[in-house]
Design a protein around this nucleic acid. Structure first.
Length: 210
DNA sequence: ATACCGATTAACT
DNA sequence: GTTAATCGGTATA
């Protein structure tokens, strides 16, 4: 069962420090409920994208297109885009209207609906006992939770997609930081320590914890 | 209208 | 360690 949680309200997302919010999201629980099927996971890896001043952001230099428009919208909105023609990447929009900050959710520790997740990966009963691959990496997170680019613009105040707080608090020393992944094209900005993760968690993407 | 490429993953050698 | 898969977004013309 899903733990008792308080849904994060708009005031959580409506803050200026996207890096701080990215850290605070660690330990929170991302939930989706589509067609009655609930899937949820504790967030263990995030990346901050700081809008127009961030070369790695889709909104760099004020780029504003049909795709990126949601980032300029209300805080606490889902921004989902397609990457490499395959992967549904789930982001949370933060900060006030017209400031296109976003946080990419890169990995979860499954909490609820693992059977549904397995179904979404086309895994048959009894097959592949190791479940670690399910929600490790942003593309897998999107797939496991049934997210699709068509869900972009959804409010996280609704019941289909939201993030909850069950009271778990991580200590500072449990949180690791590193440069973001896959943003080499961003020059110096690629070196910013905008990626955060729960140290030692098996679901965090990358080689070290694999 | 057309060309290039990516906030990735999994399956190879 | 290397690379194919795969297609919408974005820039260029």
């Amino acid at each position: 069962m899903l733990p008792v949680m308080k849904k994060l309200g708009e005031e959580f997302y409506d803050r200026p420090d996207v890096v701080q919010i990215a850290k605070e999201l660690l330990g929170k629980v991302l939930v989706t409920k589509f067609d009655g099927a609930i899937t949820a996971g504790r967030i263990v890896e995030t990346e901050a994208y700081a809008g127009t001043v961030d070369r790695a952001s889709h909104a760099w230099n004020g780029r504003r297109t049909k795709r990126t428009e949601v980032m300029y919208g209300l805080p606490g909105t889902a921004y989902i885009y397609l990457c490499y023609g395959i992967h549904q990447m789930f982001n949370v929009v933060t900060n006030q209207r017209d400031v296109p900050h976003a946080i990419l959710i890169r990995a979860l520790e499954p909490v609820e609906g693992q059977a549904v997740m397995l179904q979404r990966f086309g895994v048959k009963e009894g097959q592949r006992s190791d479940p670690y691959f399910l929600t490790k990496g942003p593309g897998n997170v999107g797939r496991a939770l049934g997210l699709h680019t068509s869900h972009t613009g959804s409010s996280l105040q609704g019941d289909e997609v939201y993030i909850g707080d069950d009271g778990l608090r991580l200590k500072k020393e449990q949180i690791g930081e590193s440069p973001r992944i896959g943003v080499d094209y961003a020059g110096e900005h690629a070196e910013w320590l905008y990626r955060f993760y729960v140290k030692g968690n098996k679901y965090v993407s990358g080689k070290i914890t694999r």
